[in-house]
């Protein structure tokens, strides 16, 4: 509960801040807080990843970008009514959607009845009284179910994930591989700034 309130406070602060540097730092804190929340919700692997990737890598990337660009948001933030309407509508839709949801933590929720029990049974087969031989894929060798599923049943998603990183990597290389910017066009930047960008 406290974590959640802190998260909301951080998020609101991010919107309101004009100093981009502070905003970036706050977004790092936001990630860390959410990692904490993940731990509370039993998702330790996710928490670990979020702390490393979300709070770590993403923040570093943002800071790196800030060094290349400016650190202040120019116009004072003001309320954008049309955006607010869209957001409120979307939020309302989601809240309405939650009304029929199973309560938080409800062990009888559908999500825990189908597919998932089989995953858990694979890992803790011995305990649930299932035979060790026929349907037990891991025979208890992989204690972390998340890892087991990630690498087996949903190993293909993980391959896709690698492909995503690879795509982003190639993309960043393509975009920033130290070539003069936008040949054939006349950017309105002064040379000094362009060179600064090239060194990235």
């Amino acid at each position: 509960m406290i974590l959640l309130s802190l998260l909301v406070a951080t998020a609101v602060a991010i919107i309101l801040l004009r100093d981009l540097f502070a905003a970036v730092m706050l977004s790092g804190i936001f990630s860390l807080l959410s990692a904490g929340l993940f731990v509370v919700m039993d998702a330790v692997d996710v928490a670990f990843t979020e702390a490393a990737v979300g709070a770590g890598i993403a923040t570093v990337l943002m800071l790196g970008t800030l060094t290349q660009t400016s650190t202040r948001e120019r116009p004072a933030p003001r309320l954008d009514w049309s955006a607010l309407v869209v957001v409120v509508l979307t939020g309302t839709a989601l809240v309405i959607g939650t009304l029929d949801m199973p309560a938080y933590g409800d062990p009888t929720a559908p999500i825990h009845q189908h597919v998932a029990p089989a995953y858990i049974a694979q890992n803790v087969g011995k305990q649930s009284g299932r035979s060790e031989t026929d349907d037990d894929d891991f025979q208890g060798h992989v204690p972390n179910m998340v890892t087991a599923i990630l690498a087996s049943y949903r190993g293909y998603d993980t391959l896709g994930e690698l492909a995503v990183i690879f795509t982003a990597g190639v993309g960043v290389m393509l975009l920033l591989s130290g070539l003069p910017p936008t040949a054939g066009d006349t950017p309105e930047t002064n040379p000094a700034e362009s060179e600064a960008g090239v060194d990235a």
Binding site: A93, G97, T108, P110
Partner: peptide, 28 residues
Amino acid sequence: SVYAEGASIENPALPVNQTRTILAAFAF
């Protein structure tokens, strides 16, 4: 039939796709 035995649901005979949650899922 999708909830576990003994779950407290208001309207057990309601098909899953008539819940608001699924409606929201579809909308998104």
